[in-house]
Every structure is written in C-alpha cells, then in structure tokens.
Simulated scan of single mutants.
Amino acid sequence: MIIQRYHLYLERTSKAKNIARFYSISIEPNLFGDPCLTRRWGRIGTMGQRMVHHCGAEKEAVVRFLELLRQKRARGYSTVPGGSADNY
C-alpha cells in the first residue's frame, strides 16, 4: 500500500534546436493498492506515450522514480511550477 503519492512534471525546451518535450513521472496505487510507477513523455501539446511499471513495494517504486529523475535532469529537463501533462 502506498503511503504517499508522488508526481513530477519536467520539460526540456530549446527554440534554437526546436525542442519542446515533456516528461511526467508519478507513483500511484493500482486497483489492489500496489504501487505503480507511471511515465508519460512526448512533445509538448501532444498525448505522448505512456508506460506503467508495477512494483512490489513503495520503496522499489521510489528508487526507480529517483533514478529516472536523475537521468532526465542530466539530459537537461527541469521542473515547471504548476506544469501538468494531464491536460493532453
């Protein structure tokens, strides 16, 4: 069972390189209360793609969440206050 929900929305933009990408990571319970890490990514303004990882424990999901965050920050993604890909 998940004690706390996690959600993070990141963007990477560059007008010079025509880059406008989003990346969203969240940890939420599935129907049975087990933690699932959901990733969404794509071009800003599109539906993008989605992948769900089913985890055995919240700790496993958090470790994967933090690893993905580290990777995305290394590639130039940054957090956006109030940003959300849920509108697409």
Rank of each mutant, 00 (worst) to 15 (best):
N30F: 08
K15D: 11
K72E: 03
R40G: 04
R12C: 03
H54R: 13
I2G: 00
A61H: 03
F65E: 00
L8C: 07
V62K: 00
L68I: 12
D34P: 04
V80P: 00
F32C: 02
N87F: 15
R43T: 13
G48Y: 02
T13S: 06
Y88T: 15
G42P: 05
R40Y: 10
L31K: 07
H54F: 14
Y77Q: 01
M51Q: 12
G56C: 06
S24C: 13
S26W: 06
L37N: 00
S78D: 14
H53L: 15
M1T: 14
E11F: 06
Y88F: 14
M47W: 09
N18G: 05
L8Y: 08
C36E: 14
S78Q: 13
L10W: 04
N18W: 15
G48F: 02
C55R: 05
E67P: 02
V63P: 00
L10Y: 05
L8I: 14
A74P: 03
Y77E: 04
G33F: 11
F65S: 00
G56A: 09
R39Q: 10
R70K: 14
Y77G: 03
L68C: 02
V52C: 03
G48V: 06
Y77C: 02
G33H: 07
R43E: 08
A16H: 09
A61P: 01
I25T: 06
G76N: 04
R50Y: 07
R12Y: 07
K59W: 07
E28S: 06
M47P: 08
R64L: 15
A57E: 11
R43Q: 11
R50F: 09
N18K: 15
